[in-house]
Design a protein around this nucleic acid. Sequence first.
DNA 1: GAAGTGAGTGAACAACTGTCCTCCGAATCG
DNA 2: CGATTCGGAGGACAGTTGTTCACTCACTTC
Lengths: 215, 215
Amino acid sequence: MSHTVGVRQAQKQRTRQALLDAALGLLEEQSLSSLGLREVTRTVGIAPTAFYRHFRDLGELGVALVEEALGSLHAMVRTVLIEQAGVEAQIDSAVAVVDRHVREYPAHVRFVARERHGGVRAVRQAIAGQLDRFGAEVAEALTTQPTAQGWGADDLRKLADLFVDRLVTTAAAILDTEDAEDAEAERARVVEAARWQIRLITIGQQHWRGEAEEG
Amino acid sequence: MSHTVGVRQAQKQRTRQALLDAALGLLEEQSLSSLGLREVTRTVGIAPTAFYRHFRDLGELGVALVEEALGSLHAMVRTVLIEQAGVEAQIDSAVAVVDRHVREYPAHVRFVARERHGGVRAVRQAIAGQLDRFGAEVAEALTTQPTAQGWGADDLRKLADLFVDRLVTTAAAILDTEDAEDAEAERARVVEAARWQIRLITIGQQHWRGEAEEG
DNA sequence: GAAGTGAGTGAACAACTGTCCTCCGAATCG
DNA sequence: CGATTCGGAGGACAGTTGTTCACTCACTTC
């Protein structure tokens, strides 16, 4: 057991990761359906044919990128919603998580925003699946909230989707601020607007039952 | 004045429109940055070089498509918000407008959703500009509402952006239902969810001041 | 009715694409 | 230690791409 069981397999995963990184970099200024296989292998520094040892085509690479971009976020979102006590604290830290994630992995976020409705079906479906999971997880987290007692599962899911959509849109909006004149100020404005909007949604949530009973 | 002042100019605009239509069709299954100039001219049936008589490049064509897809919508949104009396009626008809527009011009909607965060900067900016206009128009329409009296312009704009984002997301979600098993049922579900969510936002709006004064 | 304009043509260009095939050589296995 | 697996190299293939240039010829203008 002294040898790290697989010098070969380790090297394979290293070039696989290099392919993913190179693709992600190139995708900052174009979309997946226009990305070339040779373009990717060229920046990695390997022969074009070597690509096929790792992915069937660029769509498969795209799906792997989706997993890399969104897969690790599930645990984070879950802990945020559970650990924080109080609605206000939850909103702040949820928005903060999004803000931080965009700052740390801007290329991943840009990729997801771009390919969510992009030209490659398999990638679209992968992203849709991940966002669907987010919706379900948030909905489940909401069931433990005191403000959501007595709510039906359907309504909780719609509310959760509203939150998730708001956060995704916020992430994309934060990215767009990079083009602005005073980027950091614009970014702060977007983040503050997101907090305000989510707060308003929670207020709607708190008064929902009363309104429903009146109608 | 018997001759329609410009047989030549009329023909030019006809092929220009043919280029836009052909591009829109091809863009149903790919994104703009992967669309080929020759691909477009081939489906129109003209020589590749004739393209340059109408657009400098495909980016310029994309910007024209944005105008075609979103430009006509401003008047419609405005009349919906003014003519309808009562919040509930406004929500219903706003969602109905979106639903109808997606049904009538699915390719245009798909194009906007795809290129909103797509790989061509000029097109992204054109879409962002149009959505910004929508936000401003909805905000202005809200100022005449009784429920918005006493609200600051900033808050009204954030609220308006929340509505606009919700409608844009809904349009994209409706498009995605085309892949579902029972497309029409899924579509109805998405539309109903949108109505529910917007209703919840308006409830938040109605109780906002009370909450703000408490804090 | 002659001169001029300009949308569309067609050939040619170098550069690029994805995929096939054969081969190499180092890590793995028995 | 010999046999085998397999990540990667390299050549070759037929297609495609955007852009150039000189051109035609129906329409417009004077």
